[in-house]
Each structure stands twice: as C-alpha cells, then as structure tokens.
C-alpha cells in the first residue's frame, strides 16, 4: 500500500475535487435552505418536503435492497448458460417473454433497475433486459390488485393498465432491437463491468447498493419537491381539455414519481380528468419517472438515459391513449 500511494498521488487531487464539489454543493444547499429559505418560505413547507422525501426513501429502501440482492444472485451464481436456457435465443422473441416475466417480480421500480443491470452483465440482450425493466413495476399482481381497489367497479381500468403497460414495454424493446443501435451503444457503464461475476456475492451487493442508492435519493429529493411545491389544483385546471389533460398527467406522473403500488389511488382522485388521461398517468409512472430516470442515468450512463427516457414516455403515452380509446 505504501508503495502505491506515491504513484497515485498526482491523480488524487483531480478526483477529490469532483467528489468534494458534489458533497460541498449538497451541504451548501442544505445549509443555505435552512438559513435563508426557511424563514422566508415557512417551516411547514420544509417539513412537508422532508416528510415526503424521507417517506419515498424509506418506502423504496427495502425494495431497492431486495432488487440488489436478486441482482447479486444473478451476477454471482447464475451462469450465462443457465440464463440462456431461460431467455429465448432470439431477442425478438425474448422481448415479449421478458415483458411477461415482469409479472413475476412484485416490487417497486427501484428494484428492477439493479436487476436489469445484472441481466445485461450476464449477457442478456439489452433490449430484452430493458423490456423487463419497463414491465416489472407495471404488470405485477400487487400493482393490478391495488389498481382494482382504487377503481372499484371499473375492472376495465385494470385490464387497460395491464395491456397498455405490457405493450409499452414490448414496443420499446422491439424499437431498440430494430433501430436502437445508437441507443444501445450508449449503454456505457454496464458492459464494462466485467468483474461482476468474479466478485463475491457481498461484493456485488455493496457495489450495486452504493451505485444505486445515491441516484434513488436524488430522484426522491426532486419528486418530493414537486409533490410539495406544485399544488394539485394547478394540475386540475387543465382537466377539461382532452389533449392537454393527457399531456399534463403524463408529465405529472413523471415528476411526482409515486410507487406503482400506490399511484392508482392518486390517479383515482383526479376525478375531473378523462379515464384515458388517468390511464396515461398509470402507464407512464411505473415505466418512467424522475426517480427512475435518475437511477438509470446512474446505472446505464447519462447519454443512454437522455434517449431512453423520452422514448419510453412517448411510447407509454401512445400505448395508453390507444388502449384507453379502445377499452375505456
């Protein structure tokens, strides 16, 4: 160790600066907001933000850890041979299979990100793994049951949500297969991590958890801010307009970043909106929101996220509008 330190010494200041800056900015924001912003705004506002922020993190943490554990199992113990038996050889067929496989992971979207990462590491085609990422939080039984509870007497809403989410996931998977070269080339961070299989199980757990948790927290901070500072009545003002209502709820689903198990209850409270607009809210939210975008930028690289996020949102809106027009 002592022999290495001098060699690395010149590199150190560069890294430290980057790290220090981020930490310093975060601490500054916290300190400044307490010193100046709080008295100017009011304490209630900060407390409400704090409660919602901590709530999102506390709610997500067990799911994230569960996802990380599952992902470490895949990375450490599942051989590529075993995995290739489960996943069809042809990616075009693998995409719909991955979409249906999403039914089997009843967890939050935060659990799906590290699992997807480990699937790609283990040689599953990225388009197939990303289809799983989109489908898992949206079509699992826990989500469908909570949707049924939130929309009593509207079983079509449950069916519509299931179909529209599944179609979104499969469509995005196929689009990436067909013309996703540019997109998938930008999957920088994943392919490079070739050591995952060599690391011990706990090594993978700590690596993945450290990797994902910061981005989860960032997403939760932003979502809590939107939740606190944007009054719901602003959203309600556009309820009457069909197109604007759909776009507004799509945007709202992205920025409030609710758990897919609970978003149906919020959607049900948008009584002034059309059922199709509510469906858009339910389909966009689990597939893509600010928390997921943040985690995906962390796991798959910023360049990838900048293309993947709009692709998913546009596909989800189109799919939900189509299904809503047909079923609701």
């Amino acid at each position: 160790m002592s022999t290495k330190t001098p060699v690395r010494a010149p590199e150190k200041p560069g890294f430290r600066l980057g790290q220090t800056e981020v930490v310093a900015i975060v601490l500054l924001v916290i300190l400044l907001s307490q010193r100046w912003l709080l008295p100017l705004l009011d304490h209630d506002l900060f407390n409400t933000w704090g409660t919602i922020f901590v709530a999102i993190v506390v709610q997500s943490a067990p799911f994230l850890l569960g996802g990380v554990l599952l992902s470490a199992v895949i990375s450490t113990f599942l051989s590529e041979k075993a995995l290739s038996k489960i996943v069809p050889k042809s990616p075009a067929l693998g995409v719909p299979v991955a979409g249906l496989a999403g039914i089997g992971l009843p967890g939050c979207e935060c659990a799906a990100v590290p699992v997807t990462n480990s699937l790609i590491r283990r040689g599953v085609a990225p388009a197939v793994a990303l289809t799983f990422l989109l489908a898992a939080p949206a079509v699992n039984p826990a989500v469908l049951v909570s949707t049924a509870v939130a929309f009593p007497g509207q079983p079509m809403m449950v069916l519509a949500r299931f179909l529209a989410s599944l179609i979104t996931a499969v469509a995005v998977g196929w689009i990436m297969l067909a013309r996703g070269k540019l997109l998938l080339e930008r999957l920088t961070d994943v392919g490079r991590d070739e050591h995952a299989h060599d690391r011990s199980f706990l090594g993978n757990v700590s690596h993945d958890f450290l990797h994902a948790s910061g981005f989860l927290v960032l997403g939760a901070m932003l979502a809590a801010a939107v939740n606190t500072f944007v009054p719901r009545s602003v959203v309600n003002t556009v309820a009457g307009q069909a197109v604007l209502g759909i776009l507004t709820l799509a945007l709202f689903a992205f920025i409030v970043a609710l758990c897919s198990e609970s978003d149906a209850f919020v959607a049900a409270s948008f009584t002034a909106f059309s059922d199709t607009a509510k469906l858009v809210f339910l389909v966009v939210g689990p597939a893509m929101d600010i928390k997921l975008a943040s985690m995906e930028a962390g796991q798959f690289g910023m360049g990838f996220a900048l293309r993947f996020v709009p692709l998913v949102i546009i596909t989800a809106v189109a799919s939900a509008v189509g299904i809503g027009w047909w079923l609701l």
Partner: peptide, 27 residues
C-alpha cells in the same frame, strides 16, 4: 477498474441527516 462508486453515493447520507436533524413530523 471495478467497484465504481459514483459521487452521487454521498447523497445517501441525506435522508439520515434530515431524519436526525429535522425529524420531519407526520403530515
């Protein structure tokens, strides 16, 4: 390299800091 840990990881201490310092109450 492996074990890449993004600087963003530091944010993971923020929830704990807020719980201990501000202890946000029930809504």
């Amino acid at each position: 390299h492996e074990h890449k840990v993004p600087a963003m990881t530091w944010l993971a201490i923020v929830p704990g800091v807020i719980v201990f310092v501000a202890s946000p109450p029930s809504l």
